[in-house]
Nucleic acid binder design. Sequence first.
DNA 1: TTGACATAGTTCATATTGTTAACTATAATT
DNA 2: AATTATAGTTAACAATATGAACTATGTCAA
Lengths: 160, 160
Amino acid sequence: MNYVNTTIDIRVLEYQANKLQELISELHNCCKERYSDEAKAFKMPQAELRCLMLFEGHKYLTGIQIAGLLEVAKSRATVIIENLEKKGLVQRSPDPNDARVKLINLTPAGQRKVREIEEFMFELHQQLLGQIDPAQRNGVINALETLRSSMEALKAQLNS
Amino acid sequence: MNYVNTTIDIRVLEYQANKLQELISELHNCCKERYSDEAKAFKMPQAELRCLMLFEGHKYLTGIQIAGLLEVAKSRATVIIENLEKKGLVQRSPDPNDARVKLINLTPAGQRKVREIEEFMFELHQQLLGQIDPAQRNGVINALETLRSSMEALKAQLNS
DNA sequence: TTGACATAGTTCATATTGTTAACTATAATT
DNA sequence: AATTATAGTTAACAATATGAACTATGTCAA
C-alpha cells in the first residue's frame, strides 16, 4: 500500500459516503411522499393508518403496546386510538385481568379497512418490483438487507 | 413454463414484494430517527436544517425556490426563512431586478453552521460505510441506485 | 396605455404529528 | 399499610405543513 493507493482509497471512501448520503436521502423523500399519498388515498392521517396496521397478527393490543410499536409517547397513542374509535375502526374494552389496562381491537369495519390497506400496499410493492430487472431483484433485496444491518449496527454503536 | 413453475414464480414475486415493503419501511424509520437526532444535535428544527443545506452551491435563493426545493407551500417557506433570519443564519434583501422578489443568502454565521452540518453528515455516512463490508460497498450503492430509479419510474407511471 | 392576468411573498386559520408533565386509578412490593 | 410502579388520560405546547385571502409587483395583449 503506497502513498498513491492510500490517496485513491480515501477518495473512493469519500465518493461512496457522499453517494450513500444522497441515495438514502432520496429514498427517504420518496417514501415520505408515498406515505403521504397513501394517507390521502384512504382519507386518513398517516398515524391512524400505521396504527391500524399494527393489528396484523394481533387480536388485541394495549395502549402501551401501541405506543411502543409506533414509537410515540403513550399520550399520543391515546389520541390516535380515540380518533380511530370515533371512526368506528377500533373498540376499547377493559382488561378483565388488570383494571388499569384497556384492550383495543379492530371492529369488523376496521378489519375490512386493514385488508384494503394491505392490498393497496402489496399492489404498490408488486409494481415497484415490476420496475426492477428480474435478474437484479434479489441483489437489490440483499443490498437493502445489508444496509439495514449496517444502519442498525451503527445506531447501536453510537448509542453506547 | 408449466403450472408448477408459474405458481413458484408467483410465490417468489409475493415474497420479494413483501420483503421490499418491510425493508423500505425499516430504512425509512431509521432515517426518520437519524434526522430527528441530527436536529437535536444542532438544537434546530429539521425544516430549518434542511433549508440551510439548500444553499450548498447557491449564493442566493428566493422564497419560491426554497419552497420548491423543500417541496413545501410557499407560506411554509416564509416561516422557515423568518425563523432562520431571527437566528441570524440567513438574511433577506430586495431583488434589484424585481421588487416582488426577496433574495435570501447565508450570513457568515449561517455559512459556519452549514459547514458544521456538512461535516456531521459526512462523518455519519463515513461511519455507516465503515459498517459495510468493503467488498459489498459498490454493490449496495448500485442496488440503491437501481431502487431509486425504479421508485421514480413507478411514481412517473402512477402520476400519468 | 390600460386592463387582465400572473407571480412573489405575507398572514391567518386550520390540521397533523408529536412531546412533557400532571393527574387518576390500579397493581405490586417491601 | 405505605411506597412505588404501571396504564391511561388530559392539557399545554412545539414543529410541520396546507390552503385561502391579501398586497404589491410584473407582464402582456387588445
